[in-house]
Design a binder for these strands. Sequence first.
DNA 1: CGCCGAACTTAGGACATCTGAG
DNA 2: CTCAGATGTCCTAAGTTCGGCG
Length: 771
Amino acid sequence: MSVDHLTQLNTDSRLNDSHKSSKSEEKHKPKEHKHKEHKSKDRDKDREKSKHSSSSSKNHSNSEHKDSSEKKHKDKEREKDKVKHRDGSSDKHKHKDKEKRKEEKDKIHSSSSGSGDRIKKENGFTSPPRIKQEPDDDYIPSIKVENKPMKRPREDDDVDFKPKKIKSEDVKKAKKRKSEMDIKNKKSKVKVESSGQGKKKKKEEEDKWKWWEEERYTDGVKWKFLEHKGPVFAPPYEPLPDNVHFYYDGKHMKLNPQSEEVATFFGKMLDHEYTTKDIFRKNFFKDWRKEMKPEEKAIITDLNKCNFEEINQYFKAQSEARKQMSKEEKQKLKEENEKLLQEYGFCIMDNHKERIANFRIEPPGLFRGRGNHPKMGMLKRRIRPQDIIINCSKDSKIPSPPAGQKWKEVRHDNKVTWLVSWTENIQGSIKYIMLNPSSRIKGEKDWQKYETARTLKKLVDKIRAQYREDWKSKEMKVRQRAVALYFIDKLALRAGNEKEEGETADTVGCCSLRVEHINLHVELDGQEYVVEFDFLGKDSIRYYNKVPVEKRVFKNLQLFMENKQPEDDLFDRLNTSILNKHLQELMDGLTAKVFRTYNASITLQQQLKELTNPDENVAAKILSYNRANRAVAILCNHQRAPPKTFEKSMQNLQTKIDAKKEQIGLARRELKGAKADYKVRKDEKCRKSVESKKKALQRLEDQLMKLEVQATDREENKQIALGTSKLNYLDPRISIAWCKKWGIPIEKIYNKTQREKFAWAIDMADEDFEF
DNA sequence: CGCCGAACTTAGGACATCTGAG
DNA sequence: CTCAGATGTCCTAAGTTCGGCG
């Protein structure tokens, strides 16, 4: 964190202190009453702000030029909004407990700096600089918003699918549907496949079902038939052998299996840093004691007197032993695993065998949330059959629970995609077993996601024009919405839902940004109107970025921050639901996250165009691809902890480079010598020697280049994770089109799993595909 | 209309397995 | 052949969105 960031923070808080507003009184209200009070306070504040904003908008209006025709329209809208506002409907109602946050903050930072300290500790690296060029979009935006279904609805004759006739009938149907579709969609790639085309073709089609050539369900039905074998439970606890001891206060103590199991969870983790954290230890100890027998509970009262060392050693030895297993043993284990996969890893959904993603129930253990999680260390309990809800077809073979046990419930809900669910005990949220990304049900959704993003592409200019216009709105709420949307669009921020405090780590997204998360600089490093962002986002990954913004945005931010405490919401009149409602009106299916998908994909496409050099070889082109991918990862702030071995491996590489350089020096000298010889002797032998020396030198130089490129690549990738964007944000058809265009084998870009996930795209994208 | 739970996508880290340079 | 580093898989936490309910 830079010095001026710190001073800025301090200045801010001082400034705010002198302007103590209604907020500060509120701080001392008892918590229980807070909820309602907050609401009415906010309403007051809203009115006040509203006044304020309309008066101050005069101040900011010097650069405002009004388009009269549009103004009329706008005014009408404002009128509407104002009416709504009078109802109190636009009040923001957050039940975030700011008091607490403030107190905490005061505790931590009583004397000095801002939030930066904490942030750095939590996640030691800073965000790399990000680039995102605005796509030079020559597209003419269309006004019409239509989200035409990609396919026709399924026919009703599918209703009584019977599991028995699993595939043969289906192939016929697929063909029928496909031919209809081909006519309708005028697909460039026509697949010839008359019904009389032999068994081989049929077989292939069975192996690789092309669900994307079939119609989709409409009306929320997710499947017509679903059969599976239920989940695989975590193996039961195996008590420790008698020679592995637990000590309390130096004395050996035999724990009963139930509390022993929980002890092993802690013992296994001894090497992890977080077993030293106070919250972790406190939560663990509390939950552990709940599992103890009264006698144990009476004795074990202080975690510091517990010695898990032997337990720790035991598990280390176990994992060592696993590594040392013979080939045959490993093979056997692998086969058993495979058998389990074959039995439980697949289900039958609508006549097709589909892979299940997570068919194993999460084993018990100690919860470790990410970042500074208030619940870290709590016991994640073992899931039993009686906790499990099974979802499948009525007419399917219903999975049987383990002997002597019962499911919590068996239901037949074909409006959802999950096969199994249970409620987890840490947050009380529901967990699911669902299908693999290669499945129809996931693939269709994925495809649709990119289609929505492409629809946004057609409208984005209009939407941008609109939110720029809204920066001038008389209404605070509209301005906040417009500025937030600008951030979401320009910086690919996440929407930022409100979170319940004390339940999760303190992280934010766009709508939940607080005043303390940004710093305004009228001038910074030679740039005007710079906003400095510094906050923890999803997974407590730090987002740090300095962005020059338009003057109007800057002025708006100043306005939003007026009379606020650092821990107050920046966009106090906005939340994700308001924002998304607005977006929904702009385009069918538009939500905040679509901007991330759109901007990621368009950035890839444009970077690929820019970086690919037709004359270069495959390796160089792939490097370009990775660079393009990296640009997206940076945009989306996909970070990773630098690999543990990074420094070392970098050093090794450097050593290699140095060695290579030395070799080159040597080769140069030799070449020189050979040349000199040739000059004197002019004979064939010498000429050949020169030639070969030249070649050798050339080869070495090539190798050096390669190493240096590798080093750069690795350095650039140190903190950047490419996988997330590749898997979730980049329309696979862009990459596939690029591969086809430049003759790059798809395997160089997508591994086997990824090719399975993106099979639909591989099949349908040709080299002309444009996102 | 706001709140909350349900359902589903997105996310990084741990661990296992593969690979290719020495 | 060996081993380090790269790559792939698994795991499950942490987001977003939506719809229903009071």
